[in-house]
Nucleic acid binder design. Sequence first.
DNA 1: TCAAAAGTGTTCCGTATACACCCATGC
DNA 2: GCATGGGTGTATACGGAACACTTTTGA
Lengths: 218, 218
Amino acid sequence: MIPRIPVSVDLVVLTVRSQQLSALVWRRDRPPYEGRWALSGGFIKLEEDLPAAAARVLAERAGLPGAPVHLEQLQTYGYPDRDPRQRVVSVAYLGLAPDLPASTEAHMSWQPVAELTEMAFDHRRIMLDGVERARAKLEYTSLGAAFCPPEFTVAELRRVYEIVWGRPLDPRNFHRKVTKTEGFLVQTGRTTTRDGGRPAMLHRRGPAVLLHPPMLRI
Amino acid sequence: MIPRIPVSVDLVVLTVRSQQLSALVWRRDRPPYEGRWALSGGFIKLEEDLPAAAARVLAERAGLPGAPVHLEQLQTYGYPDRDPRQRVVSVAYLGLAPDLPASTEAHMSWQPVAELTEMAFDHRRIMLDGVERARAKLEYTSLGAAFCPPEFTVAELRRVYEIVWGRPLDPRNFHRKVTKTEGFLVQTGRTTTRDGGRPAMLHRRGPAVLLHPPMLRI
DNA sequence: TCAAAAGTGTTCCGTATACACCCATGC
DNA sequence: GCATGGGTGTATACGGAACACTTTTGA
């Protein structure tokens, strides 16, 4: 009668570290695709909501329990032979994280996106879709701050944009844009000199979600 | 063991007709939600790709075989009690269609989105997500033309935008924007007077997909 | 004193907006 | 002729790009 199919959740967790956009992956230690990099994932339970499953995979499989990761649904992948063992429909989630230490216990590591050319299953396709979504979202939302620690300078936020978009931005115009956009940043009142030069104001993420007008990549 | 779950495809097919944004729905004739409007949907087969399942549902359940409908994946809905009979994970697809006759054979009809307040399951939530996606896509893509017949005037395209966005647009500025954007429209050389007044040039959809810079709603 | 980075001011330019105006048809 | 809608031209405003310049620290 009605076909029943295993449904999984796969996570594309991205961060910016060592001047590179990187993804949280693990190296498969058994067939199929033994030795290849794979996204963290898991099957959803019978009584479990999709966002709850994504949060559980983030905590248990990706080894980031309680981490401040922005999770949003990316896309669903379901062509029949994407897993050679059995048909699996996979709901991919995109996660944007600050530069957290990867869990060695969960055998996860951060790998630069540019170097992840050989991945298991269709995970490269999924990861690239996640990267493109992240690049697009930085244009019209304030989500770039999700890549930053709780307190950050405007220059640190700018370097996030530069690395995700892969092009330099004018520091002065960028500064005006993000500080003038209502609700993007909240000043803490403290300053830091960790980037050298004149002390920079520290900020937190503000309540704004959307950017009007957007900040265009090109 | 790995839980196996029925996976369905639900279609939010939208069109513009009678000056209203409308969705393709049918009235349920049996419980649950008997008498309520529902989206067309169906379970995916074991060896079937997701886009193929969406195309099959469009042809067989929605009664629009071979119609020029732009289909794209919308979002996946999977909280456990969305169907009271059994758990179903549903991959929703958004379809943008010209004003085609609804299939009476398939018991489908076009209903204005504004009047679809009481729908079966979580179909109102899904439909509203589709409407919001359509509104957003008109800003930065040339997909508005998917609501038009094969040949259309600039004014007809403008009325699509006005109805989807729910606000009037300046006819002269709109005309300049869409005709100056490379690859948005292709002139056919023919004209029509079906809108009254001076004859208007007929156009086809051009090869462009993205709009740079976008056309903002506000 | 100098280098480095933060932050401000200013000029220039492209695009959106608002609207005056002309064009080509039906009645 | 006149109403109706199609299409062009033009002045203004706003936001982004480019860049000169000042500020504030560490070395």
